[in-house]
């Protein structure tokens, strides 16, 4: 079975990134947006693993990078969910479109 090349992995990562991006833009509910942001984060990790496996880059660096990336994403999700819950408790909705009081 044909070996999977670097370009294939990068393309996969790019595709995943695009899916996540589209999800973030078109979603109405905040939770939906959070989930799609997570997909984008994962696509970056796939990208890193692709480079680690196929290109001559020092593998250790790639692993550090992806571990730190996961740390960052975990922190973001923690804060994101806290905010969404707080908003829900206050405004009884997590639909982003309803939250348009601040403008101008």
């Amino acid at each position: 079975m044909p070996t999977v090349g670097l370009t294939a992995v990068v393309l996969l990562a790019a595709a995943l990134f695009a899916i996540g991006l589209y999800g973030a833009i078109s979603n109405d509910s905040a939770i939906g947006i959070l989930i799609s942001l997570e997909i984008m984060a994962i696509s970056i990790t796939v990208n890193l693993m692709g480079f680690a496996r196929f290109s001559s880059v020092a593998q250790a660096n790639a692993w550090f990078f992806s571990v730190f990336l996961m740390v960052i994403t975990a922190a973001e999700i923690g804060i994101g969910l806290a905010l969404v819950v707080a908003v829900y408790r206050r405004a009884r909705t997590s639909e982003v479109d309803d939250l348009s009081e601040l403008k101008g």
Binding site: A41, F51, L83, A86, R90, A91, E101
Partner: peptide, 30 residues
């Protein structure tokens, strides 16, 4: 509610753009 709404917007938009940044960084690293 305004404070929370502002914070949520700030959070979501910043995370979106920092993901752009990290994606670019990973590509450069690669």
């Amino acid at each position: 509610i305004q404070g929370l709404e502002g914070a949520l917007k700030y959070f979501l938009l910043s995370v979106l753009t920092s993901l752009f940044m990290i994606y670019g960084a990973s590509m450069l690293f690669g």
